[in-house]
Amino acid sequence: GSVVKEKKEKALIEVRPYVEYYNELKALVSKISSSVNDLEEAIVVLREEEKKASEPFKTDIRILLDFLES
């Protein structure tokens, strides 16, 4: 629970300088966080969101995924 939350919060802070739609990304992460149990599940849902998103938000999600998977 809290470790996953920390990882996601740290990821958002780390990617902030590189993303165009930070507030939207943060809102998406919050929405996903409330419906998943762990980081792996969150990553799966983020990948689905990435497929549906259009640029440049798609790239923002990709940047976040790269950080979460590192």
Rank of each mutant, 00 (worst) to 15 (best):
N37P: 09
S35K: 10
E40Y: 10
K26V: 15
K52A: 11
Y21T: 02
S33I: 13
R47V: 06
E41Q: 09
S34V: 09
P56D: 04
L46S: 00
E48D: 09
V19M: 02
K5N: 14
E48F: 06
K51P: 02
V3P: 11
S54L: 08
S33M: 13
T59L: 05
F57H: 03
L28H: 01
L12V: 02
I61Y: 01
L64R: 00
K8T: 15
R62H: 14
L65A: 11
V4M: 11
E14S: 11
L12R: 01
A11N: 03
S2M: 09
T59S: 13
E49S: 05
L64N: 00
E40H: 09
Y18A: 14
F67K: 06
F67Y: 14
S2Q: 12
N23K: 06
Y18H: 15
R62A: 10
I61D: 00
V3G: 13
E9N: 07
E48N: 09
V3K: 13
I43H: 02
I63W: 04
K52R: 11
K5A: 13
P56K: 05
E20L: 07
R16K: 15
E69I: 10
K26W: 07
E20A: 06
V19W: 08
E48M: 08
R16P: 15
I43D: 01
E6N: 07
Y22D: 02
S34W: 06
E48W: 08
I43K: 07
K52Q: 10
E6Q: 06
Y21D: 14
R62N: 10
D60S: 05
K31E: 13
G1M: 01
G1F: 00
L64W: 02
E49F: 06
D38C: 07
E48Y: 07
G1T: 12
E69N: 10
Y21P: 01
V15N: 03
L46Q: 00
L46T: 01
S33Q: 05
D60N: 03
I63G: 02
G1Q: 12
E20K: 14
K26Q: 09
L65Q: 01
K10W: 08
F57P: 01
L68Q: 00
L65W: 01
L65R: 06
E9L: 12
I61N: 00
I13G: 06
E14F: 03
K52V: 08
Y22S: 03
T59K: 14
L68E: 00
E24F: 03
S33G: 07
R62C: 10
L64V: 03
S30A: 11
Y22C: 05
I61A: 00
I43N: 02
E50A: 12
S70Y: 09
L28D: 00
Y22W: 14
G1P: 12
R47C: 07
L39H: 05
N23E: 15
E49Q: 05
R16C: 15
A27M: 08
E20T: 15
E40V: 08
L68S: 01
L68R: 00
I43L: 12
V29C: 10
E24V: 04
R62Q: 10
E48P: 00
A11P: 02
V44H: 11
P17R: 10
V29Y: 14
D60Y: 11
I13T: 09
K26M: 14
A11Q: 03
V15K: 04
S70C: 10
A27F: 06
P17W: 08
A42R: 02
E50R: 08
L39E: 12
I61C: 01
S34G: 10
D66H: 15
L25I: 03
R16V: 11
L39G: 05
L46I: 06
N37C: 06
E9V: 06
K5E: 14
L64M: 05
S35L: 10
E6G: 12
S30P: 01
Y22R: 00
Y18C: 15
I32D: 03
E24G: 02
A53D: 01
K7S: 08
E55W: 06
E41K: 06
L68F: 08
L12H: 02
T59G: 11
E40D: 10
L39Y: 12
G1S: 13
L64E: 00
V19T: 02
L25M: 01
S2F: 00
R47Y: 10
K5R: 11
V45K: 13
V19P: 14
S34H: 08
I61S: 00
V4T: 10
K31H: 09
K10R: 13
V15C: 15
V44E: 12
E50S: 10
S33K: 03
A27Q: 10
T59C: 08
A42W: 13
K52T: 06
S30M: 10
V29F: 14
R47T: 07
D66P: 01
P56N: 05
A11Y: 04
V15R: 01
T59R: 10
K8S: 15
T59E: 05
S2R: 05
E55S: 03
A42N: 03
S54K: 12
T59H: 13
K7N: 07
I63F: 06
E55D: 09
E20H: 10
G1I: 13
F57T: 02
K51T: 09
